[in-house]
Amino acid sequence: MSTNVRPDIDAAVAKLSGTLGSKREIAKLPEVLWEGETVDMLATGIYGKGNGLVVMTNMRLIFLKHGIMGQQLEDFPYPKISSVQWQGGMIMGTMTVFASGNKAEIKSMPKDNGKALADKLRMVLARGGAAPGVPAAAAAVPQQQDPASRLATLDQLRAVGAISDQEYQERRTAILNSI
């Protein structure tokens, strides 16, 4: 499906398994993005009281619901996210985001888009908040996770095959050396 909203948004929409119930949010997305912010991945899901759009950008994770009776916008800047969990069923799954001592559950996410987004988000967190496509050393976002959380995230990435054993050992050594 082509939305002709913006090239980065159109590319992310093309990867969605379905846009049912999220067309209004896709159209409104440029209004909620910060200057210089680009969309990397999208998924649909239910958060709080409504079905909406989960947006992974180069700066943050966003949940956007834009209905006739009300709007909901919640964002999670990467440095504030301590970990991400994915629990998948046959067709749908739930992504749980732990940020600033809070827990946000986004339910009824299509399994393919939700798992891919959760895996990529874990990779961003393991890189210290570096945006997708940006080398970790060039990330302007300082690392604010404690070493135990960083090691747990690293273990999750290795468990799902997002990083190799060699990358795991190198990053684990770097985390332990930073203590």
Rank of each mutant, 00 (worst) to 15 (best):
residue 78 Y to E: 07
residue 76 F to C: 09
residue 135 P to C: 04
residue 152 A to G: 03
residue 79 P to M: 04
residue 143 Q to C: 00
residue 155 D to G: 03
residue 80 K to N: 13
residue 88 G to K: 08
residue 150 R to W: 02
residue 139 A to S: 15
residue 74 E to P: 03
residue 135 P to Y: 02
residue 155 D to I: 09
residue 146 D to R: 06
residue 166 Q to M: 03
residue 153 T to G: 13
residue 82 S to W: 07
residue 80 K to W: 10
residue 103 K to T: 15
residue 116 A to D: 14
residue 93 G to P: 07
residue 82 S to T: 15
residue 123 M to W: 07
residue 160 V to Q: 04
residue 138 A to V: 03
residue 116 A to F: 07
residue 72 Q to A: 12
residue 137 A to F: 11
residue 69 M to K: 13
residue 155 D to Q: 06
residue 118 A to E: 09
residue 169 Q to H: 01
residue 84 V to L: 09
residue 132 P to W: 00
residue 83 S to C: 01
residue 90 M to W: 08
residue 123 M to T: 15
residue 107 K to L: 09
residue 147 P to Q: 14
residue 151 L to W: 02
residue 77 P to S: 10
residue 148 A to M: 01
residue 103 K to A: 05
residue 97 V to R: 09
residue 94 T to Q: 11
residue 99 A to G: 12
residue 86 W to V: 11
residue 124 V to G: 06
residue 116 A to H: 14
residue 91 I to A: 13
residue 101 G to D: 06
residue 86 W to T: 05
residue 134 V to C: 12
residue 148 A to D: 09
residue 151 L to M: 05
residue 78 Y to M: 07
residue 70 G to Y: 04
residue 111 K to Y: 12
residue 117 L to C: 02
residue 145 Q to H: 08
residue 134 V to P: 03
residue 92 M to R: 14
residue 142 P to C: 10
residue 175 I to L: 01
residue 167 E to M: 10
residue 119 D to L: 15
residue 98 F to I: 05
residue 136 A to G: 00
residue 150 R to M: 10
residue 85 Q to K: 12
residue 150 R to P: 00
residue 71 Q to S: 13
residue 116 A to V: 08
residue 133 G to D: 04
residue 160 V to D: 07
residue 133 G to Y: 09
residue 109 M to G: 10
residue 126 A to Y: 05
residue 166 Q to L: 14
residue 118 A to M: 08
residue 120 K to S: 07
